[in-house]
Computed example of a mutant assay.
Amino acid sequence: MSAIAGRRNPERERGAGTVLVVGLCAVALALLGVLVLLGQAAAAQARAATGADLAALAAADIARGLRAGDPCAAAGSIAAANRVRVAGCRITDERGGTAEIVVTAPMPYPWPAATGRARAGAPP
């Protein structure tokens, strides 16, 4: 065995730490990006659920005769105030007037919109 074969060559390993740190930073940034996207999706889903609840309550009040107006128009204005869009509005005569509302909350990326559904009416 020669003396050279047993020695480490520090010139060959020069810069290996830099490559490792750059790779770890790239992985950390990718994970951070995924977390941001998931956070925005969760926020859009919460916004859709809240908008659907409020729109259904407003529509149910009108359907039951507690306020004057068109139930679906009221649901649309409440939904717009909550940055969501009414995708479906159905008013039934069940229990004196029940509103079933479906809303969508747009996502800032080319993902499908978050959907929220709510039903409101007179208590049983």
Results as ranks from 00 to 15, higher is better:
residue 50 T to G: 15
residue 54 L to P: 14
residue 80 A to V: 05
residue 30 A to P: 04
residue 11 E to G: 11
residue 82 N to I: 12
residue 87 A to P: 01
residue 46 A to N: 14
residue 64 R to S: 12
residue 97 G to L: 04
residue 98 T to D: 07
residue 113 A to H: 08
residue 10 P to W: 09
residue 120 A to S: 11
residue 51 G to C: 02
residue 61 D to G: 02
residue 114 A to G: 02
residue 3 A to D: 08
residue 97 G to P: 13
residue 11 E to F: 07
residue 53 D to M: 00
residue 3 A to W: 08
residue 77 S to I: 09
residue 121 G to M: 12
residue 96 G to Y: 04
residue 47 R to Q: 15
residue 57 L to H: 04
residue 15 G to F: 03
residue 20 L to E: 13
residue 58 A to Q: 07
residue 114 A to L: 08
residue 87 A to F: 00
residue 66 L to K: 08
residue 124 P to D: 08
residue 91 I to G: 02
residue 38 L to R: 13
residue 94 E to W: 03
residue 99 A to E: 04
residue 10 P to Q: 09
residue 17 G to C: 12
residue 26 A to C: 10
residue 124 P to V: 10
residue 124 P to M: 05
residue 84 V to I: 05
residue 91 I to Q: 10
residue 81 A to C: 00
residue 33 G to Q: 12
residue 111 W to M: 02
residue 34 V to Q: 03
residue 99 A to Q: 04
residue 16 A to I: 07
residue 7 R to K: 03
residue 80 A to F: 02
residue 47 R to G: 05
residue 76 G to H: 09
residue 40 Q to D: 15
residue 99 A to P: 06
residue 118 A to S: 06
residue 93 D to R: 14
residue 121 G to E: 05
residue 27 V to G: 13
residue 20 L to M: 15
residue 64 R to L: 12
residue 70 D to V: 02
residue 21 V to I: 11
residue 56 A to W: 04
residue 82 N to L: 11
residue 105 A to F: 00
residue 98 T to W: 05
residue 19 V to D: 10
residue 2 S to V: 10
residue 13 E to I: 08
residue 77 S to G: 10
residue 35 L to I: 11
residue 69 G to S: 11
residue 18 T to H: 01
residue 111 W to A: 03
residue 118 A to F: 01
residue 82 N to D: 05
residue 116 G to M: 07
residue 35 L to H: 06
residue 112 P to F: 13
residue 81 A to K: 02
residue 43 A to P: 00
residue 66 L to W: 05
residue 74 A to D: 06
residue 120 A to G: 07
residue 63 A to F: 13
residue 13 E to D: 05
residue 27 V to N: 06
residue 16 A to G: 09
residue 1 M to V: 04
residue 69 G to A: 06
residue 67 R to H: 12
residue 24 L to G: 10
residue 69 G to I: 01
residue 19 V to K: 09
residue 106 P to L: 10
residue 18 T to G: 11
residue 46 A to S: 14
residue 100 E to A: 15
residue 73 A to N: 05
residue 87 A to Q: 06
residue 8 R to A: 10
residue 7 R to Y: 06
residue 79 A to H: 10
residue 92 T to M: 10
residue 43 A to E: 08
residue 111 W to R: 15
residue 93 D to G: 15
residue 81 A to D: 00
residue 22 V to R: 03
residue 55 A to N: 12
residue 10 P to N: 04
residue 58 A to H: 05
residue 90 R to G: 03
residue 80 A to E: 01
residue 100 E to N: 15
residue 30 A to L: 14
residue 49 A to G: 04
residue 61 D to M: 13
residue 115 T to A: 03
residue 26 A to R: 01
residue 54 L to V: 12
residue 44 A to V: 01
